[in-house]
Design a binder for these strands. Structure first.
Lengths: 340, 340
DNA sequence: ATGAAAGCGCTAACAA
DNA sequence: TTGTTAGCGCTTTCAT
């Protein structure tokens, strides 16, 4: 009962025909090759019966195509990335592509390794939220005509398709919401990073503060695997400054959640002690008491654009040389945490 | 500057030696084959210079090994699975294995497809939280000597290694916590499912209720991709019954979060109107007001056991025939939601 | 309309 | 110690 893995040769032999014919039939090129319908039927029937499955490794080796898309996110356990990955997986699957995902941890070397692994496995296209420092590797992909779509952020020196949100406008608006409520000492707590999305978020905050003639209060913490190491510096900052601050804008969902944990520990009440807005929306923010105002990223729209861009390249609907930038707007979900 | 993909033959030719020698050297079998150190050095230097990378597809095709582990979770956007996937990925990576993950959606057919894809790609081992109905496919893997480790649940009719938690004891204890606080009308809200972990959780609740001479209140909702469709039946149930109930035990983190959303909509206050305990721990539960008592799964321990079990099989440290069951205990994080 | 044969890049048994 | 060679399973050109 152990199914011996059978190959195209086995089935050709069993049917006393050549493997070429089998190959053509299996690849739907029977008509084109004018193979008799009768033969086609016989082959299909046999294949069905014995449950033959082509070895896609051999196929890939021969054709250079794999029908696999490599997806690299920063951290698959981050709900934002997990949700995006999920949607992309679904859409890809429906279009005959499989997805392999990996977490980069924003680690340049790990990412280089992963790109290499994807190349090894002959993935047909790449989707990534790139860390800094991989410009060369990505350019090398592009030079080899491998389509790459970036999202969440992009690499300024690499000319690829990318789908991002209007980060600067989002934090600008969020900061203004706080300013209009009369808050004057507004902090921006975020990850330290030179990535485009982070720079833009910071810039939006700074511009709104500057336009209002206020002073900036910026705390950047280093991204760490271990959440406690993120909470620690936030704790110190809030602990030292919460009396002179009246509002906080968090730069990412992760920082936001850590911030809320700090508030809990310090017994800080929202919005009375500190008003709060966070980037990204998330269960926690909706269920928190009071509910937290959040800058929601349109996850479906991002995922949709990303996969469409890539599929178009893969199906040669768009020229590889033709690079698109898509900027999708965010949605401010105003809730009680930012009100008076 | 476009790197022409070079092969082992190219490098053999450039160096005027045979590809066999190159292959042996590249695979660290130089010593074993008593290849001169000088040659080894020359080859390594050249390989380094031209940045040669072996084509792992060809390698896999030839050896049948891929150094890839296939990981199938129910839904990668569920924080429990995302966290486990993350940890497994890390450990595997450190041991020279790559991970490919996929979401099964508890969909039998999709899972069969995915298993097929993994087989196609010659993954060396399988880790899965299996849906029902794939017994045959898994048995087929086992018959072909492919190691399979299950976690979160197992298939009663399939003899594989698996790592699970003591589900029954956990809900039993959680229910007792509520009973000891004097709650008498305790509901159990969970997903309808015949999976082992769900059956066990239900059994634990029922036993505790029976032992206390109380009446069960069970609401099972169907798992759906779309969260609103999960919330709806919970809303109806809670809306109809909350007056006669005094406590609720949620069967999974997902149900728990949906439940909290329902409470918010109905203005139900915790624990005064309803005391709450949920399976799985999660940011939301810690940050909720009041913090929610939760049955925490020891994620690291589960991931560690899973990957260790599989690596042992892959490295032939354990016989394939030798099946282990590991049951790890959960941790009750008692918080204000279950108190009086 | 069908078949033979080369070759994708690699490994390993066997020769030398 | 190193080289020759036969595949792994598939696609595709070129004959027939």
């Amino acid at each position: 009962m152990v199914k011996k893995k059978l190959s195209i040769v086995d089935i050709a032999n069993s049917l006393n025909i050549s493997k070429t014919s089998v190959s053509f039939i299996l690849n739907g090129r029977a008509a084109e090759k004018r193979i008799s319908e009768e033969l086609v039927a016989r082959v299909m029937k046999f294949v069905e019966e014995v449950g033959y499955k082509p070895n896609s490794l051999a196929k890939s080796l021969r054709t250079g195509k794999s029908n696999i898309i490599g997806l690299m996110v920063e951290d698959i356990s981050n709900p934002f990335f997990a949700a995006i990955a999920r949607l992309i997986e679904d859409r890809a699957y429906k279009n005959g592509y499989k997805i392999i995902y990996c977490s980069t941890d924003n680690d340049t070397n790990k990412t280089k390794d992963l790109i290499q692994m994807f190349r090894d496995r002959h993935v047909d296209g790449y989707i990534m939220a790139p860390p800094e420092g991989i410009e060369e590797d990505v350019n090398d992909l592009l030079k080899n005509n491998l389509p790459v779509v970036m999202f969440d952020r992009y690499l300024p020196n690499v000319d690829t398709d990318h789908v991002v949100i209007d980060n600067k406008a989002s934090t600008f608006k969020a900061t203004q919401v706080l300013i209009k409520q009369g808050y004057k000492d507004i902090a921006f707590v975020t990850f330290s990073s030179e990535q485009t999305q982070m720079n833009d978020r910071l810039a939006g905050y700074e511009q709104a503060i500057a336009e209002a003639g206020l002073k900036t209060n910026i705390k950047q913490v280093k991204f760490q695997q271990n959440e406690d190491l993120i909470i620690e510096p936030i704790f110190e900052y809030i602990n030292e400054n919460h009396k002179r601050l009246d509002a906080v804008l968090f730069g990412t969902n992760h920082v936001g959640v850590c911030g809320l944990k700090v508030f809990k520990r310090l017994g800080i009440s929202v919005p009375d002690d500190l008003a709060v807005i966070s980037f990204d929306d998330y269960d926690v923010f909706q269920l928190y008491t009071p509910p937290v105002t959040a800058i929601a990223q349109p996850i479906e729209e991002i995922a949709d654009n990303v996969i469409t861009l890539l599929l178009n390249k893969l199906n040669n609907k768009t020229s590889l040389a033709d690079k698109q930038t898509i900027i999708v707007p965010t949605i401010m979900n105003v809730r009680a945490s930012s009100g008076k």
